[in-house]
Amino acid sequence: MDYENFSSGDYELPCEMNDTRQMELGIQVYVHSFICLFGLLGNLLVIITYAFYKKAKTMTDMYLLNMAIADVLFVLSLPLMIYNERHNWSMGTWACKIFRGMYNINLYSSMLLLACISTDRYIAIVQARRSFRMRYRTLIYSQIICSAVWLFSLALSVPSMVYNERYEDTHLGVKSEAVCYFRFDDNRMAQLVKILVPTTQITIGFFLPLLVMCFCYTCIIITLLRAKNFQKHKAVRVVLAVVVVFIACQMPYNITLLYHTVELFQTRECSSEKDVLKVLMITESLAYLHCCLNPVLYAFIGVKFRNHFCKILEDLWCLGKRYIYRRSSRVTSEVYISTRRSTEGSNNENGSSFTM
């Protein structure tokens, strides 16, 4: 189609997003690769610890285990999403729906489990007597709550799985690369879903956990400061670190997403649209980084968990040494046997020659 035949008053050409696309590819290659590597390593260590070294005995243990599973599923799906985005979603529409759905399920479940952890710590420290009476029913409660969190996250992710599709994006009849994005049959549904999905993500996936964390940890800090104990004051610093890291990682992305949602159906200049999309990409990567920090803040910062982690490293070191020892012993024995055979063979050859 010849763009020269269009007048600027009748049509507005779409924004040129080549520089934004190049920035997105760079973030995917370097930043997201780092997040996948360290997020997978840290959360797998948490799962291994609970599976082989420290059984889940309390509600917090169960929440941490489920949160690690959610983060592992997220970091495993992230490279596949990046691969499909760079190869025109070669896996098709079902991969588009599944990966977008997995992203939302893991987002909601991880954030809601953070709120559950905060509530459990509030009960354990501020409501200590009630916590002692509830101890014998904690695992049953935690399993029910975790199941409810996963089901609720699945329900919230249904619109993303239903309306996300793989299709060829076109501008004024010019075919471009395939994308995985929302696709609708009418404008009313498009406006509803494009506002409902990010609004739900902001409220349920950020502001609700933030309010729960702020309330619970404020009460925890007040309770700990009343107890004149050095260890309790160290716990206050840990609590503050948890809240500060959560706000630093999640708030910039959610504020940018809120601004983008409010201005979604407003006319904007290309430069403004590019700036918003660039900030959205950077803050989204910062939000992804939180899955790498979860194991450090909620698991390895504890003394017992650090001891289990050291035990894992010791066992891996022992297994490595045992493997090297067996391999070296096997090589040594094979060299000895081959040398002996060659020696015996040469002796037999010498004897035969002598007899002949």
Rank of each mutant, 00 (worst) to 15 (best):
Y3V: 14
Y3P: 14
N5K: 15
N5E: 14
S7T: 15
Y11A: 09
Y11K: 14
Y11P: 00
E12H: 14
L13G: 08
N18D: 14
D19M: 12
T20R: 06
E24M: 05
L25M: 07
Q28T: 02
F34Q: 02
L40S: 12
Y50D: 05
K54Y: 03
K54V: 04
K55A: 07
A56K: 10
M59V: 05
L65F: 14
I69K: 04
L78G: 02
L80I: 15
N84G: 04
N84Y: 02
E85W: 00
E85A: 01
E85N: 01
W94F: 10
G101R: 02
M102S: 13
L107D: 06
S110A: 15
L114W: 01
L114E: 03
D120N: 14
R133I: 12
R133A: 05
M134G: 04
Y141F: 15
C146H: 07
V149N: 07
L156D: 05
L156T: 09
V158S: 05
P159F: 03
S160Q: 10
Y163V: 05
Y163P: 07
Y163G: 08
E165M: 07
R166H: 12
E168L: 08
D169M: 11
D169F: 12
H171I: 04
G173R: 08
V174T: 05
R183Q: 13
R183L: 11
R183Y: 12
F184E: 06
D186F: 05
A190Q: 13
L192S: 13
V197Q: 12
P198Y: 10
P198K: 07
P198H: 11
Q201K: 11
Q201N: 14
T203L: 15
T203G: 04
I204H: 11
F206C: 15
P209G: 00
C214G: 02
C216R: 01
T218A: 06
T218I: 04
C219R: 11
I221D: 04
I221W: 07
R226Y: 06
K228G: 05
R237D: 09
V238H: 13
V243S: 08
V243I: 09
F246R: 01
Q250V: 01
N254P: 02
H260Y: 08
R268F: 03
S272D: 12
S272V: 15
K274V: 12
K278Y: 06
V279T: 11
V279Q: 05
L280V: 01
I282Q: 02
S285Y: 04
A287G: 03
L289W: 07
L289C: 05
H290D: 00
L293Q: 07
N294P: 00
G302T: 02
G302M: 03
F305D: 15
H308E: 11
H308D: 12
F309I: 03
C310P: 00
K311L: 10
K311A: 13
E314S: 03
W317P: 00
C318A: 11
R326N: 12
R327G: 08
R327K: 10
S328M: 07
S333P: 00
V335W: 02
Y336A: 09
S338M: 14
R340D: 08
S342F: 00
N347C: 07
S353P: 00
F354E: 10
T355V: 13
T355C: 06
M356P: 03
